[in-house]
Amino acid sequence: MPKIVLIEDQLQLAENTKTILEINGFNCYVANRGQEGLDLIEHINPCLVVCDINLDEIDGYEILRQIRSNPRFVSLPFIFLTARADFVDKRRGMNAGADDFLTKPFNARDLVETIRARLEMSSQKNESVGIEIKKNAIDVFYHVSNHEYLTPLNGILNLSEISLDMVRNNQYKDIEPLLEGIYASGARMLRTTRKLLWYNQLSNMVNPWEKTLKSFNSKLNVPELLNEIIREVTKSSLKVLDINVKSHVSNLYGYQEDLIKIMFTELFQNAVNFADPSRKVFSEDRLENQMFVLIIRNNYFGKYTIKTDDIKPFFQAHNPKDMKGTGLGLYIVKEWVESINGEFEVNGEGQLFDVVIKIPLNV
């Protein structure tokens, strides 16, 4: 049965409305205060919300604003209850994202028909969104397959063929660079696959790193980790870059080493991919309010502005017409940082690009 959250501070009206909804086949959960209603929505994940405008502490407009700021509830059907539904009320409610209004007193028939209509519209909207998501996914997979899979796969096959011929002819002297090329191509395919799998989980409201949120008995040497990452990303790049590293933090505790290396590598890989090789790349880490702060700054070709809110799946400001990579790297890092109650920020202006992450010193 569809789940409805009803937020109404008049106890008798709330009880009567709950009875009407349950008789008509809905599961109704009641909150008599604004914050209680927000908590209930978060916990219940309802199909629809019916909310009085005039509540104490937090009114209906603020409840709606907070709901719409949560990506989980951007499209959640929301119906206002109000003792007066004049033009000003309706305009303010619609501007905030309300779907409909019911004026008190209302009859049972109007209530049920309005809810059913909104649920039907929501179902149709979700179906349309689902079709569009599938279409976009196909387009992206086509691009990724052609560039991020076929290119390294060709490298693996070609280098493997040459290596096999050399082994058959006992020519081992120059085989090491070929094996390194095979390894680099395989690692690239692994990074692409991992990001696509994580993106799929995030799209389905699943936290890919839930198991890593527990504290690990680990101690990471920050300078060693960063230097290792920089060696790897610069080795696989055709550019000759000057990277200036200032590390003021010795150790991080409680993090899964493989995961944090993946995330930091994404940040440095992004900087290397788009950096102007004639300018330095800067990296600095420090402690700030019990948080580990990592800042990476590079200069890039072209001029454009990019902010944190622009970081979305498959988006690249650097080269939007001819996407280089999957366009998922910074998005994945952003989601991971936020999943551990950290902060993520990017700022691109002119030719200067900054990425700043802040993560807890101990998970």
Rank of each mutant, 00 (worst) to 15 (best):
S203Q: 14
D100M: 11
V240W: 07
R84T: 10
G130I: 08
L159Y: 08
N158E: 12
P223E: 08
I295C: 12
F78Y: 11
K324A: 02
V337L: 04
N200K: 15
A275W: 04
N146F: 05
P208M: 11
T265E: 09
L119Y: 09
K125Q: 13
S237P: 02
P77D: 13
T192F: 14
D59F: 03
H147A: 10
S203H: 08
S215C: 12
D276L: 06
R297Q: 12
E132F: 11
N154A: 10
E148V: 07
R279L: 09
N95W: 03
N273Y: 01
G329W: 01
D86W: 04
Q269T: 10
I182T: 12
E257Q: 13
G302D: 09
I296H: 03
E8P: 06
I262G: 00
E284M: 11
I63M: 01
A108L: 04
G254T: 09
T265N: 07
L294I: 04
N298D: 12
K211P: 00
F141A: 12
V356A: 02
L330F: 03
G25I: 00
D86A: 08
L21S: 10
T114P: 01
N289I: 06
R116Y: 01
R72F: 07
R92P: 00
E161W: 04
K235D: 02
E338L: 15
I295T: 15
Q290W: 00
L252T: 09
H248K: 15
N251F: 14
L13P: 00
D110S: 13
N347W: 12
N341F: 07
T17D: 00
S250A: 14
V30S: 02
E148G: 07
V272G: 05
A108W: 03
Q12T: 11
E15V: 13
V222E: 02
I260F: 09
F101R: 14
D86G: 08
E42Q: 14
I20F: 02
K195R: 15
D56F: 08
E335D: 02
D165N: 15
E224K: 15
G130N: 13
F73C: 02
N270H: 11
V88S: 12
I340F: 02
R92E: 11
Q35R: 13
R231E: 10
N270T: 11
K261L: 06
Y331N: 04
I41F: 02
I359C: 04
F106W: 15
D39K: 05
S122V: 01
S283M: 14
F106S: 06
V355I: 15
G93H: 11
F26K: 03
Q201Y: 13
A83N: 05
G327D: 07
T19M: 09
A14N: 01
V222M: 08
L225E: 08
P77M: 15
R109Q: 12
K334H: 05
C51N: 04
E345I: 10
L21M: 13
G327H: 10
V337W: 00
F141Q: 08
G348L: 01
E15C: 01
L178H: 14
N273W: 02
F274C: 04
K261P: 00
M323V: 14
L259E: 05
G350H: 01
A31E: 01
